[in-house]
Amino acid sequence: MAGPSSSSHQVLLQARSISFAYKHNQPTFQNVSFDIRKGEMFSLLGPNGAGKSTLLNCLSGVDHPYEGTVLLNNKPISRLSPREVATMLAYVPQHISTTYAFSVREYLAFGAAPRLGVFTSPGKKVYELVDTVVERLGLQPLIKRRISELSGGECQRVAIGRAIVQQPSIILFDEPTSALDYGNQLRVLRCMRQLLSDGFTIVMTTHNPNHPLLLGGRVGLLNKQGQLTVGNAQDVLTEQVLSELYDARLHMVRIETLRRDCCLPDNL
Rank of each mutant, 00 (worst) to 15 (best):
S43Q: 03
L44A: 04
L44Y: 06
L44E: 02
L45I: 11
L45Y: 09
G46H: 07
G46P: 01
G46Q: 05
P47S: 12
N48Q: 10
N48M: 08
N48P: 06
G49A: 09
G49F: 12
G49W: 12
G49N: 07
K52I: 02
K52P: 02
K52D: 01
K52W: 05
K52N: 05
S53A: 10
S53D: 04
S53Q: 07
L56K: 07
G61L: 05
V62Q: 08
V62N: 03
D63E: 15
H64E: 10
P65M: 09
P65W: 10
E67K: 14
G68R: 10
V70P: 01
V70H: 04
N73H: 13
N74P: 00
N74T: 12
P76S: 10
P76V: 11
P76K: 10
I77K: 04
I77L: 04
S78L: 10
S78P: 00
L80M: 14
L80C: 03
S81G: 01
P82E: 04
P82R: 06
R83G: 01
E84D: 11
E84T: 03
V85Q: 06
V85I: 15
V85L: 02
A86E: 09
T87Y: 00
M88Y: 01
L89W: 05
Y91C: 05
P93L: 13
Q94R: 07
H95E: 15
I96V: 15
S97D: 14
T98A: 14
T98H: 11
T99K: 12
F102G: 02
S103H: 12
